[in-house]
Structures are given as C-alpha cells and as structure tokens.
Design a protein around this nucleic acid. Structure first.
Lengths: 156, 156
DNA sequence: CCATTTACTTCGAGTCTCGAATCAATGACA
DNA sequence: TGTCATTGATTCGAGACTCGAAGTAAATGG
C-alpha cells in the first residue's frame, strides 16, 4: 500500500526534516533563537549584498508582517540591524552584526553536524545533492533575486 | 565555500520542505486544516491499530499538551474521536471517523501531487527512496520515549 | 501636482508550542 | 491490603508564529 516511491520519498523527506528540527532546537536555545528566527538568520549570507525585507520574506516564504516580527526578534538579540537603502528610501536592508555573523556560523555548524545526512558517504551525498538540485531546478526559479544557494525557509 | 555536498543537501532538502508546505496550505484550508493538524491526521493510518496519544506524540516529535491541543482541533472538525484503551484505562486511542478517513486521503493526495518530487522520473524516485530510507535507518529506530521538541514559549 | 503603487510597520486575532500543575489509573512492594 | 512512585493524559498560563487589514512613507507615472 505504501510502496509508491513518491510517497516513500515524501514521507522520508518530511521525517528527516522533523528529525533535524528536533535535534537542533536545544542548541538554538543557547543562542536565544527558535527555528523560525534561526532560519531567518541563516538566510542572510554575509558574503552577499544585504537583502531587503522583501527579498528576505520571499526567501523565507513568508509575508511582510511576519518578516517584520522575525527581524525584530533578531534585532532585540543583537544579531542584525536595519539600514535604509540609499537607492530606495522605502526599503530597509537587513545587515548582520558581528554577533550575528558568529551566531549564524554556529547555527549552520550545528545544523550540519546534527543532520541525519551527516552520516552519508561523500559519494552518496554527491548523488543526493545532484538529484535534489535537479528537483529544485525543475520547480522553476523563485521570484526576484535569489542567491544561488540562498534558501532559508518558513516554519509553518 | 558553499560547495560542500552536505550543505547543499541540507539546504536543498529544507527548501523542498518549505516549498511543499507553502504549496499545500491553500488546499488544507478547504479542509479546515493547518500544517500541524494535517500532519497529525496523516500520522493516523487507518490500516493500523489506533495509536495512543503518547504514540502519536512520539510520531510527531511533540509533547503531550501539544498533542492534546492538536487532537482537540481534529475532534472539533469531526475527523477523529478519542476512545479509552480497554487494556490501560489511563490511555486514550485516537480513531479516525469516516470524514477523517476521507480528509486524510485528500491531504495525502494533494501533498503528493504538489510535491516538488512529483516531477521525478520513476527511476530517479527509486534511487532517492533508497538513499533516504538508508539515511533514516542509520539514525536508528525511534525511541519509545523521547524528550520533547522545542519551539514554544521562551525568549524574552 | 495628484493618483497609484510599492516597501514596510502596526495591530488584532487565531494558531502552535511548551513547562508546570493536576488528575486518574497502574505497578511495585511490604 | 495499603501506600507510594510512575505513567498517560489534560488543563492552564504564557511565549512564539503567522496572517489579513489598515496605516505611513517614499517612489512612480501621469
């Protein structure tokens, strides 16, 4: 009954996702982050131009009020700051603080360490990466400016 | 720097997960379900013995109060009912109603249809299923009793 | 200049999640 | 049998997340 490969893949993928979330929650507490705020933090790559609120919301699959809330949380914790975009004074860009850069590093490190995928052989990982990338490419590019490896997400 | 296969896999996997959630949300509204309640509904397989609250909570990586809340939602919508377990009168088992069985079918169908994995070739799906299953197997069987997952009230 | 659009914020409401406290049933044991 | 610790579940209070509606400020297009 559950022999359909598609169902197996969807179930397993979801299970892995839950398992990962479950595992990293404790480590995030030490940074005073939740899954949602950690996500938002992850989505800000210090190696790329600081994203606007709108760009960040798109990346995280959330709407503007939600992102305002999340960025407020990160501001309160000293991890990011808002700057007015000189080119369009309506727009605010979200910039990592030094603290924020460190916290983001830690979030990424912990997540990769705790990931169920961490036990895979390099060769298996490569095959997996290729397939998943192909799947995402097939879904069509996401709106606006998305850094090639920019994916953060929504929690909900 | 971001060429590590593990990071690519974790990012892609997460992105796919968010994309799926985003896509099915609208369809779930028609069933008066949210992601959390739909997930709980999905976790009750009518082909297996009705799970206890505890068993269900373990399956969903959530704690007892949270599951009580979710099951209440499903009861209000007429999708499940609680029964006292005759073997242990402390325990309640969660049983699908006829409505619930139909709703669950619809949740599964919509989710599979909308999944980014739906576009994969059968052969690709099989490879994927094999790898993901191996990953889950390596994480070891789920313990009967596990500490709760985080997310709720803290911070501040 | 004025109307419209865009980016963002605030507000209110509904949802989700948790820990602490509570209750009932079970199990262990003297 | 009676007592006590344990277990399964619920209730309660509070923090966190998410969204739609409404509002503000800046840009755009006549």
């Amino acid at each position: 009954m559950t022999d359909q490969p598609l169902e197996l893949v969807v179930r397993a993928s979801h299970e892995i996702s839950l398992l990962t979330s479950d595992r990293i929650t404790k480590a995030l507490e030490e940074l005073r982050l939740t899954l949602a705020t950690a996500h938002a933090l992850w989505a800000i790559d210090p190696g790329e131009p600081a994203p606007s609120m709108k760009a960040l919301a798109d990346r995280l699959f959330c709407n503007a009020p939600n992102l305002s809330f999340l960025v407020n949380q990160l501001v309160e914790r000293g991890y990011v700051a808002r700057d007015v975009d000189a080119n369009d004074r309506r727009s605010r860009v979200v910039v990592l603080t030094e603290e924020g850069r460190r916290a983001r590093e830690r979030v990424m490190r912990v997540t990769l360490e705790q990931s169920p995928f961490a036990g895979c052989e390099p060769e298996e990982l490569s095959r997996l990466a290729a397939i998943l990338q192909r799947v995402l490419d097939r879904t069509g590019p996401r709106p606006s400016t998305r850094p090639a490896r920019g994916g953060g997400g929504r929690t909900g």
